[in-house]
Design a protein around this nucleic acid. Structure first.
Lengths: 203, 203, 203, 203
DNA sequence: AATGAATGAGTATTCATTCAT
DNA sequence: CATGAATGAATACTCATTCAT
């Protein structure tokens, strides 16, 4: 895992190659699900994907690249769901929270592992752009209910929400009524700060 | 880092031995501060502590044990501060949050690294007991202001608070007015759920 | 790079095939020029030649064969020049040295790399024959000026000459007045040994 | 074989460690003698030295470092001999040539392999200093017989001499009367250029 | 013939841990 | 008690070569 950018590998052209590529990413996902980041090594990934180690390196310049591709795959899935939420929805906040929870609990162990990895990880430009879009969508959805929100307050709300969903995914807090609790937490905070700035404006 | 239970090593009795032990733990802390978990290896710890690798293994059965000891040391420090908060304090919640923030920002890089390590870590009984005591103290402090709180709601509040402080430590949200925001978030949530259960009880 | 004898591949008959073959050899030359022997691998050669790796192996049984072909191509070029020197030339030695220098400095980095490779290389029969012809031509050219020369002395002179040209190519000695220096060195040596054998014959 | 400087390894303190270190270097020498540079890999070196691969890396940061140490060892041996030649010696040139030949033919295959390696090798400061000292000594020894010599002519003579000794070591020219031939070659050249500059000065 | 996907033995290097001194 | 030499399984990654399409 060096920091120097490795030269890019060839793009798969034939159908078989594309499948191989996907198999490698999915193999990494499965290993993360069943054992955590320290079990994840390139030889194991290749074996689990049913390809040779050489094949793996045809498509991914290094181990990190596989993880980046996996993170992108997962984020893309969440993004799809969030893009699909109608802005005029009666309860957009709830829809957003539901999407997050669905995503997290679809493959909770995977989500947990990736969470861990992402924080200690220099994401590439595309991954950063995705994170940005998620934030933008959240902002838009929340604005409808809570009015114009300070950037910091929005971030705070998102951090809170993510933390609660993750905590539930890790079994720290129960899954029961999770969505409601997350919505309450976010709403509680945003109403409070709305009140604060209103009061501040009133002075 | 094997998972097999390491046999316990001798407890240091003499003053010099205790110092050696502390030096090893602090060396680990310094390495984590200045480079993250992948820089942390036993040879480096020994070197930085100024002892030989053999000596290190006199006091710690394996690498994990050093980390466990470090985590305990840090948690103990936080616990001290939280135990010192008077129950009758006018704003016990704020005092609690302040203690957490102080602790986090005393050595933010260390706190961050340990955060990462802790989640992927089978803590021993003592560490679990500490976590329990922190929860109990929090519960006590919060109960005074918010009445009897459901265990799950308490946990939820603690998770939220920790997440925000950590996020600030990692630079995801600004440090400015952090304590206020955390207090607002916790208060916002607990008031909401208090209202809900009151309403629920009323029905 | 195994030592087992590779089975010969088909000879290219069609014009396109000959071009492909030449492109592969030139690609190897370019890679050697711009990075040295450790950058040279079959996949890179194929890519640089604009053909697939499979095609490369249609024409060359293994990596070595490509290098052998390249060495042959280069030697052939030098040989052409040396064959063209008229035996009756006033200064055949100088003409020979000039040809060597021209050849070396036409593509100095390539010449240098090949020099390195050749010495650690089992040349095939044809390459050996070429080396022989170069020696024979040199011998003929030198004989005219220095009389019948002992084989060993001839070889010695050739080795000296090559070493000086190579050293200049690698920047170890300056390029300035190189031809003169080489001629002086060879002449100096051959005159000395001529004197010695004359004296020896006189005894 | 990266170019980035790897961090230095610990110096051997105990006698056993020093022996291990020497054994590793000698193992590398033996492998080079019996098979050339491509047979040389760290696992093989360790095995041949009778130590584990881990031990090897305790003392050498990477493969290159072993080669550098070996080159230094060999050069030091030659340097010893050349330093021992008395300046007032009747035939210092011959003594110098003899030393070179003795050195080369003590372990000819090793000398040959190292020759090959050295040219494609970024030598460290110490190795460069040694090369410099050899040149200085040669210069001094030659000056006594040939008067003040132009730097370039000196270098030219040294290059010629080395090339002939190497060529003999590789079997390209016979060993018989090698020293005489080398002396003749060097003397022949230096006398010629001395004459040239004298003639030039005379005009 | 040409393509490029796939192979896997091989290579450098790390690091937790043991044990003789 | 302390030292540091030694271990070797494990890991990321390369590259010559084969073969199905």
């Amino acid at each position: 895992m060096t920091l120097s950018p490795p030269r890019p590998r060839k793009q798969p052209r034939q159908r078989r190659a594309i499948e191989t590529c996907a198999a490698i990413i999915e193999a990494a996902a499965r290993i993360l699900e069943g054992g955590g980041p320290e079990e994840l090594n390139t030889n194991r990934i290749a074996e689990r994907a049913g390809v040779s180690i050489g094949t793996l390196y045809q498509y991914f310049p290094d181990k990190q690249a596989i993880l980046v591709a996996l993170i992108r795959r997962e984020r893309e899935a969440l993004l799809q769901e969030m893009r699909a939420i109608p802005q005029e929805s009666g309860d957009a906040l709830r829809a957003m929270v539901d999407a997050s929870i669905r995503h997290q609990f679809a493959r909770p162990d995977l989500a947990r592992s990736l969470e861990l990895i992402e924080v200690s990880f220099p994401l590439d430009a595309e991954a950063a752009a995705m994170a940005h879009e998620i934030a933008a969508i959240s902002s838009g959805l929340l604005a409808r209910r809570f009015g114009r929100i300070d950037q910091t307050d929005l971030l705070t709300a998102v951090v809170m929400g993510r933390a609660l969903v993750n905590a539930a995914g890790q079994g720290m807090i129960p899954f029961e009524a999770l969505a409601e609790r997350v919505v309450l937490a976010i709403a509680g905070y945003l109403e409070k700060v709305a009140g604060r700035s209103a009061a501040g404006a009133g002075n």
